[in-house]
Design a protein around this nucleic acid. Structure first.
Lengths: 143, 143
DNA sequence: TTTCCTGCAAAGGGTTTGCACGTGT
DNA sequence: ACACGTGCAAACCCTTTGCAGGAAA
């Protein structure tokens, strides 16, 4: 049985509308991603999905992740290394601050920066379609 | 014979100081990177270096690129795909605007954004060590 | 000469894909 | 029933590495 059905319905609805088949595997993977508060990589998604239901292969995880990306329910983040990590795509855009000591990822939104980005793009003769911003920082000691 | 010796001397000097051997291969690769105004990937660097001198292998290009990165003369850029691309590291930091239609990369500097980034990091309890920002845009038609 | 560097080819890690079988609608 | 999705294993792409020969200091 799949939990959190209310939350998942966003993905389900969007798929039904487009006539994409809702397989068992896709539901489980959707749940895993919806439940994840960290930013798992493909293999991590695979392991979590597999724990719920062992009929799921890594290949399917990759295919499903790609499908989710194409349907804008999943966002890929590249963190310098060679593996991609993922997060559920929500309505509000946010960026990431990465703790260089621990690898923790903190999400934040800053409208001022977003405004400036649009302005910069415009100055260069472009209209901004998307952006990616990652800050890397060290925690300030508070003792 | 290696051209642009004046420009290259930055890398050469830095290597001599640290006692790193200045092999023929390294000089050629340094030249290729110094001369590149685009943002070549490892294989592209290899091909250009190889055209100048065919005694250079892809493995050496990778090893040299890593060496250059460690010595802060080269900067790695990750552009969503799986291959890394590179540019010579200069004193002034800049970010990239990518034309989503042509793949062109435009470099820009915006101090205001940099300031805001520091501020945002601080607000979250971090001191900013580095950042990565890429804007994706469509050219505004001017006809 | 000594130490470090190189080329080659093989291995590595993450991701994708061809194929025959299985499943949602 | 039909079209599409899946598991498996092999293939792929980019990058790294072990080794024996080669070059810089």
């Amino acid at each position: 049985m799949i939990g959190k059905n209310k939350h998942i319905s966003r993905i389900v609805d969007s798929f039904l509308q487009k006539g994409i088949k809702l397989t068992h595997q896709r539901k489980v993977i959707a749940q895993v991603i919806t439940d994840a508060s960290d930013h798992p990589d493909a293999n991590e998604v695979f392991m979590r999905a597999n724990k719920i239901d062992n009929r799921i292969s890594l290949a399917t995880v990759y295919r499903t992740i790609k499908l989710f990306e194409e349907n804008k329910v999943l966002n890929r983040i590249e963190l310098g290394g060679k593996k991609a990590r993922y997060e559920e795509l929500t309505d509000s855009h946010h960026d990431h601050l990465i703790d260089i000591d621990t690898g923790d990822i903190i999400e934040f939104v800053d409208d001022e920066i977003e405004e400036l980005q649009k302005k910069v793009a415009k100055k260069l003769g472009y209209s901004l379609v998307d952006h990616k911003m990652e800050l890397f920082g060290k925690k300030i000691k508070t003792n």
